Computed example of a mutant assay.
Amino acid sequence: MTIADTSTIEVIPRNAFVGADITGVDLTRPLDDATVAAIRRAVLTWKAVFFSEQHLDHAQHVAFARRFGTPSATTAVQPRRWRQIEGYPEIFPIVYKASGSAYPSGRPARPDDVLLSEQIRQETFWHQDGTTLLNPQASAVLRAATAYRLGGDTGFANMAAAYQGLPESLRTFVDGLRAVHRLGIRDIPSEDIRKDIRAHPRSVIHPVVRVHPETGERALFVNRISTEDIIGLTMRQSQRILDLLFDETEKPEYAVYFHWKPGDVAFWDNRSSLHRGPADLGKLGHTAETDRLLYHVALLGDVPVGVDGRPSTALEGEPAEPYVPASTGD
């Protein structure tokens, strides 16, 4: 096995708060420990890092992700049966169907494929993945197989910076708060998915401010998709506080937008950042172009801990579980 020459690796920040491009490394080849450590430091520092035109195959994608953790068996939509890739259960395809022809795995398209695409296209709120789980994903590696020349950008935002942006008195107040995260069905167009969510309800109480297990940073841990109410407050009080926090998390100065090209890879820390999907896929004439196809691998997370040292507590549902290593066909 040949280890990639990583002496030229460089981390280039995109702004003062979030996002960095990493150059001088070939992710299609095995990485040495020093490079893995450098990439990990960059992710912890900049919350999201980007690699251009790497053109990984499925096996290389999974191998890269496994250098940083254990793939998680659970995604936001249950179950994965709509999008299974044979031999690689760790990988979750994210597809926007422009043509409505064949599914990326090669099987014919089904009605749920279109509905799932519509759901993903509409999910443009800032969010963390898997916060309705007791142990939300620690991080994720997303790669583009195909992408549009115009639009389709993914946003990433630094939640440690958002926390520090609050006045000190407000930071002290929210340090002790805890909130319910619940997977709802209101805006999900597919009845099959709604039935599955009703059959497998998930809800959990997380700290509003999470202490990062590796860096010790405090970061806001709320999002508009799944955070419903703050424990101990009235509904009106809870909504006002949450709206204030949501507004802080969504300030443009904490964010960066990544424009995808085929072969690009994004790697982000789900514990200290928010991300959002593109809102423009249906507005730029993309119906005449190819499908937009990305592949996602989530890494298993730990149970969040608040400033007071208390961990999250589950109300409904089971924690995420790891996948066993998939066969690469070698």
Rank of each mutant, 00 (worst) to 15 (best):
A73L: 08
A76N: 12
G100I: 14
T146W: 07
A98N: 15
F92Q: 05
P93F: 11
R81N: 07
P71Q: 07
G100Y: 12
A102K: 11
G130H: 07
R81D: 13
A144V: 08
E123C: 12
V77G: 01
R107T: 01
Q137V: 07
T131K: 05
R81W: 06
P108S: 12
Y103G: 00
D113C: 05
Y88A: 02
R121L: 14
P71A: 06
Q137I: 05
P104K: 09
T124H: 14
T146I: 06
L142M: 10
P79G: 11
S101C: 11
Q128K: 12
E90N: 04
Q78W: 11
R83L: 03
D112S: 00
H127A: 13
P93T: 03
A144R: 12
P111T: 08
T70Y: 04
K97M: 12
S117L: 09
S105D: 15
Q128A: 14
T70A: 05
A140L: 09
Q119K: 06
P71D: 07
T124F: 14
A102W: 10
L116P: 07
A140I: 04
Q137L: 07
P71H: 07
A76M: 10
T74R: 11
I91Q: 02
G87A: 03
S139R: 05
E123D: 15
P136G: 03
E86I: 06
P111C: 13
P89G: 04
Q78D: 11
